[in-house]
Design a protein around this nucleic acid. Structure first.
Lengths: 226, 226
DNA sequence: GCAAAAGTGTTCCTTTTACACCCATGC
DNA sequence: GCATGGGTGTAAAAGGAACACTTTTGC
């Protein structure tokens, strides 16, 4: 018998957001043991000559058909028996996808991928519940000091969507006027002349995150903090 | 030839602090290739049935004789060619040691371990300069919202030591009175009746971090923020 | 015309900053 | 008695929280 060695995998907690449904996580149904038939976050073994991030994107594409544009390393989970069969250490990432990419392409081989609201998660394989917990915590706190929330919204969004997103992630009501004042003072949003057409009530302007401006302001010492 | 596989290692950035010398990092001189004779942070391959943190503590003991009481996972570095010979993915940690344990025991097999001020680091093996950079950034920011600074001070310390530590880590002068007011309002320091004897000038009271009180206040919703 | 969502400013209170003098000790 | 570091409070400014009415649209 060959000397056993530690296997290295990557896993990804992919978040999606819709103002009606709140925050969701992308899960897949496992079709191999262990935990065959159970739900898990996408992931798999890293190849010998593949960067960690590439491995994540490859697994995401293979298993769910999705490509995330925001991806950040979360934590590495290495407990001895987190995989019941072999020693597998996993580098967990979390990713954010925009609503327009949120619908799973039916045409992929990912028939068994599904979004689950974070308050209605099924029982999960391995320590994936723990990984998701850590990811939620990270997302919740990071959104306050890094402008990553936009990765969960479409490119153009009415201000109320941004407001709802922050209320959802922080889990507390936020005064609409104070929030807008604070955000607009940052000067990183571009107000478009377009208005949102759909829905009831008075249509609101659409906004865009002005990333270039954000980076140049950061260089000048601006601190994002909401 | 056997199929190659990814190797997994751990590395540790161990910080020490003294008010005269500022912040230092513990380095070892490598006695094997690659980078034989060069400086590196302590670390090594993880064993088949060993947790990641245990691996870090074991390597630290073997290579430097030091045991840290604060240890936190930093980031996992997995670039393809970070090790010139094999694919090695490393889980980096950072640790904090108190000044009284700061002196390296001469009696260990760690003759080649040495403290280096973070502003006077030598050229480093692998991507260890990058790892140290990330660790410094993490420490700098984390000290503002987690009471980890005490791990860099002796158990009993005059308030001025805490003050100097924060000035050193944040890299800016901090008003002595405002800093003390803010910290004392947190009610997590215990003022001892002892005074510091050494040195010139008026002796100051010694303080202790009251960890139990800190945890109970956190449960009640207190937020540490300095 | 009514229901639904968007837009907008002011006041109050809390928090943060700036700042200077006296005190205890060693030499 | 002088040099060194420790101890303490107040006033001004800035930032955050609370809060209500008007406007535009669809039905």
């Amino acid at each position: 018998m060959a000397k056993p060695h530690i296997r290295l995998s990557v896993d990804a907690v992919v978040f999606g957001y819709e103002s009606q449904n709140g925050l969701s996580v992308l899960l897949i149904k496992r079709n191999i043991d262990p935990f065959k038939g159970g739900w898990a976050i996408p992931g798999g073994l890293v190849k010998e000559n593949e960067n960690l991030e590439d491995a994540v994107q490859r697994e995401l594409k293979e298993e769910t058909g999705i490509k995330v544009n925001y991806l950040e390393q979360l934590y590495t989970f290495g407990d001895l028996h987190r995989d019941p069969r072999n020693r597998v250490v996993t580098v967990a990432y979390y990713g954010l996808v925009q609503p327009s990419k949120f619908q799973l392409a039916a045409a992929t081989d990912a028939e068994e991928a599904q979004w689950y609201n974070i308050d209605q998660l099924p029982k999960l394989a391995f320590d994936h519940d723990k990984i998701i917990d850590v990811a939620i915590q990270r997302l919740r706190s990071k959104i306050s000091y890094q402008p990553i929330g936009f990765e969960l919204l479409d490119e153009k969004f009415p201000f109320s969507e941004l407001h709802k997103l922050y209320e959802c992630l922080k889990g507390v009501p936020i005064d609409r006027r104070n929030f807008k004042k604070k955000f607009m003072q940052l000067e990183i949003l571009e107000e478009l002349s377009e208005k949102r057409k759909i829905g009831k009530g008075r249509p609101g302007s659409l906004f865009k995150f002005h990333q270039k401006k954000y980076f140049s302001l950061v260089k000048k010492g601006m601190v994002f903090e909401v």
